[in-house]
Design a binder for these strands. Structure first.
Length: 513
RNA sequence: GGCGAGGUAGCUCAGUUGGUUAGAGCACAGGACUCAUAAGCCUGGGGUCGGCGGUUCGAAUCCGCCCCUCGCUACCA
């Protein structure tokens, strides 16, 4: 059985500062990556930045900087985001790196060789101010001038020499692939959109530009640079040392198990990318998951609405686990989801502080006061105890399955429910009432609840790694050894050493801000 | 316009092939307890399941029409 797992985020275009959408893609991917590690997989988790293009070139010029140096700075802010979000990525790729350059050139050459690239003219109505091309039906005549219907800016007819990729010839192959790989595009609703789009027939794709220089030059025709998608998407194999397909990395990790992306770039990943790969005679990734957008109070975040929620500000104020947990608990993966400070506060207080955090607190402090601060070992579990533990253990296959089909919300729901159950168990068992009369029973209860805390903590570790690391460390467990298997292992607990100092895991958010 | 998804408690949503008094979390109200971050536990109120009509012994669930919301409809990423 193949125990390698390759997961990616999009590479981010660093023309602006990181926003909630970047954070969300990255957090989701990180959770799946961490869960796969719990399952003992050898995981490669890649993220990075997409640094070429006209926008960057212009910005660099405006700032009077060499584009590469300019990109070094921009990329750094995204690299620092991986730390801020506590991502477990093992690589960070930049499209301005040599390894990527090599890889893109090889892809280009392969497409030339297969006859999928030809030179022609790209023409259309172009608006300089919008930096966009418009279709005939998107423009209108006003005062004998052609203007864009949407922006009102004037457009002019431009023709530019460009290389094209014969995307049109791959429609059937793509449809066949979608058909034989029904889980390639998820969620299914998005798959239907893509299939309908491809069924309408595909146009060839312009894959080079002569209007700017900041990019990878086309081999043997350096007037052109290779344009965005062919450049950007290739990052996923550049990081595996493509074109060296005999390299261990490439052999171990290609095809990718899953590309996590936002719905706005689904087409590029579900249509262009597989077409490029088919033409280049490379295997296609196994899955592309297009998640929804994060809305703020039901609206798209925008400067003019003044409703931007900045991930870094939220993390500074409330903490990274808090943001991670909230995003994946409240937003249904695959659908757009609305977030608000009010809900964030409720979510942190209820689930993290009162439920899981306080569960750890009440149990560990009870042990400190009544058991010389050592976790009691007991083998005389009664039915109530076994029921608590078994309910979680029996659900492990289901939980694994949920994660493997990216049903993150259902997974969290189940895990939180275990935490509810554990609180109820502790309440109902009332160890404080029997500590004098039945000390053995009290020990059994504590033994049981600590097992359960350990198990819940393992399951939560992909989502809130900072907090769960603290819990493991209070229990004198090294978080490097944590795997799903340990859920079934009572002896994984350290019964000898005294519990380390416990601290509040999640502070409650007060109303007054 | 075309194709697609959806309208279920104040909010976010679950509701399997139609079957008894429609569920969960949050929010709200009351109760007993005290190990704990005034946390946890128990109980409760609240819904004409978008509207109208039909099929059926029986429909949130199937069919028809209507109203509303949202997504996709290619080269900024």
């Amino acid at each position: 059985m193949n125990k390698n797992f390759y997961i990616t985020t999009p590479i981010y275009y660093p023309s602006g500062k990181p926003h909630m959408g970047h954070a969300y893609s990255s957090i989701v991917a990180d959770i799946f990556a961490r869960f796969k590690r719990l399952e003992n997989y050898n995981v490669l988790f890649l993220t990075g930045t997409d640094e070429h293009g006209q926008k960057i070139q212009k910005e660099a010029k405006k700032n009077n900087k060499d584009p590469k140096i300019f990109c070094d700075e921009l990329s750094e802010t995204f690299k620092s985001l991986t730390k801020i979000l506590n991502l477990s990525n093992n690589d960070f790729i930049r499209t301005t790196e040599k390894r990527h350059h090599k890889s893109v050139i090889e892809i280009w050459n392969r497409l030339v060789e297969s006859g999928d690239i030809y030179l022609d003219k790209y023409s259309g109505w172009y608006s300089v101010s919008d930096e966009a091309f418009y279709d005939e039906d998107e423009i209108e005549n006003i005062n004998q001038k052609k203007v864009s219907k949407s922006s009102g800016s004037t457009v002019e007819w431009v023709e530019e020499e460009s290389y094209f990729f014969k995307l049109s010839s791959w429609s059937n192959k793509l449809l066949e692939f979608y058909n034989t790989n029904p889980n390639f595009i998820l969620p299914t609703s998005r798959k239907n959109e893509v299939v309908k789009f491809v069924e309408k027939g595909l146009k060839d794709l312009s894959i080079s530009r002569t209007s700017f220089k900041w990019g990878i030059p086309v081999p043997k025709n350096e007037k052109h640079v290779i344009y965005v998608w062919l450049d950007a998407l290739t990052n996923y194999i550049s990081a595996l040392n493509f074109p060296d397909i005999k390299d261990k990395k490439f052999k171990d990790f290609w095809p990718a198990d899953i590309h996590i992306i936002g719905k706005d770039i689904l087409r590029f990943h579900a249509v262009f990318w597989p077409a490029f790969l088919l033409a280049a005679k490379l295997p296609l990734p196994k899955k592309v998951f297009g998640h929804g957008w994060i809305l703020s109070d039901d609206k798209k975040m925008s400067k003019s609405l003044g409703n931007i929620l900045d991930p870094i500000e939220i993390i500074d104020k409330y903490g990274v686990d808090q943001l991670r947990y909230y995003l994946v608990k409240e937003v249904s993966l695959g659908n757009d989801g609305s977030i608000s400070m009010e809900n964030l506060k409720n979510c942190i207080n209820n689930d993290l502080a009162n439920n899981y955090g306080n569960l750890c607190q009440r149990v560990f402090s009870f042990i400190k006061k009544n058991c010389d601060n050592k976790i009691p070992k007991s083998s005389t579990l009664d039915n109530l105890d076994k029921k608590l533990l078994d309910n979680l253990r029996n659900n492990i296959p289901k939980l694994i399955n949920l994660m493997n089909k990216q049903d993150l919300n259902e997974y969290i729901k189940m895990v939180v429910n275990f935490s509810f159950e554990a609180n109820k168990y502790f309440n109902d068992s009332e160890p404080w009432a029997i500590k004098k009369k039945k000390p053995e029973r009290m020990k059994t209860i504590l033994h049981t609840i600590v097992q359960q805390i350990k198990n819940i903590t393992i399951l939560l570790s992909p989502i809130i790694p900072n907090a769960t690391d603290k819990v493991f460390s209070i229990m004198n467990l090294s978080n490097e050894n944590i795997t799903i298997d340990k859920i079934n292992d009572d002896n994984f607990i350290n019964y000898e050493k005294k519990l380390d100092n416990l601290e509040i895991l999640f502070n409650k958010i007060e109303n007054d801000n």
